[in-house]
Amino acid sequence: MKKYSSMACTSLTSKISSEQCPECGVSFSGRRLEEAPISVPNPFSNGHKAPCAFLVAPTEENILREFDGGSDLHTGITDTKGVVYNYTKTGVRRDHQGWERCISIPLVQPDMYNLINQWDQYLEKFSSAQMWDPLWQSFNEENHNCYSYTLMFINCVLATQSKRALSKDEFTQTFVLPRVKRASKYSMLCREISQNHFYIVDSPKRNSQEGQSDEEEDHKNNL
């Protein structure tokens, strides 16, 4: 392999589909994906299997349902059974399916038993409030939308725990944006591999450090 460059080659199947590395010519014959020195963690999860979590997913208008960095996103909150409460133009929906591939941010630590026991009650009472009734207040893309619904609920829960409220910018920058960026990079990587069977990067050391930094931030930035 050339010293001045390196690359990450992989495949969407269990076998590496390219016969050789397009950069340095190393043969991939007989090698399996599991033998690759680097793995990229999947940033997506099944939201219906993530209780008491904040979810982010592409809107239904995004036909491909991809995180491409440009499409609108939709947010929701799960109850303890994985039902996704989300605010739309028709009011609060309670989805039992449709959030199988999304970004999930856990909101409750496993040992917070009192909060977990009251979570569904809090969520249902909050979602039944008049302000989420479209007959009383219409959906507004700027200041009365799915994001304001989820963040307001999170701040209500924080208030019950005697914790300070989070501003929109603070919550976005700390919890949402890093994960959305990672999801966009992952989606781009999958598209490149699907189309070309490989993806080349300039510096494996730098990219490895970036990946570790993302994981550390992800672990640190939990509510």
Rank of each mutant, 00 (worst) to 15 (best):
M1Q: 07
K3H: 10
Y4D: 13
S5A: 11
A8H: 15
A8N: 12
I16H: 01
I16A: 02
S17G: 04
S18F: 07
G25E: 03
G30D: 04
E34I: 15
A36H: 09
A36L: 13
P37D: 12
S39G: 09
V40W: 10
F44H: 02
G47F: 00
C52K: 04
A53P: 03
L55C: 02
V56P: 04
T59P: 00
N62F: 04
L64Y: 05
L64D: 13
D68Q: 04
G69E: 05
G69R: 02
S71F: 01
D72H: 07
T75S: 13
G82R: 00
V84T: 01
V84H: 00
Y87I: 05
K89I: 06
G91K: 05
G91A: 08
R94G: 00
R94V: 00
W99L: 00
I103N: 02
L107M: 06
Q109V: 04
P110W: 02
P110V: 03
D111A: 06
M112K: 11
I116L: 01
Q118E: 13
D120K: 00
L123Y: 04
K125L: 07
K125I: 04
S128W: 02
S128F: 02
S128Q: 13
M131Y: 09
W132K: 08
D133W: 09
L135H: 15
Q137E: 12
E141S: 12
E142R: 14
Y147W: 08
T150H: 06
T150D: 10
N155P: 07
C156H: 14
V157A: 14
L158F: 05
T160S: 15
S167M: 12
D169W: 10
D169H: 11
F171I: 11
F171Q: 12
Q173H: 14
Q173W: 07
F175P: 03
V176Q: 11
R179C: 05
S184K: 05
K185E: 13
Y186T: 08
Y186S: 05
R191H: 12
H197C: 08
V201L: 04
D202T: 10
S203I: 01
R206C: 09
N207F: 08
S208A: 14
S208Q: 08
Q209L: 13
Q212I: 11
D214T: 06
E215M: 13
E216Q: 14
E217V: 03
D218Q: 11
K220Q: 14
N222L: 13
L223F: 12
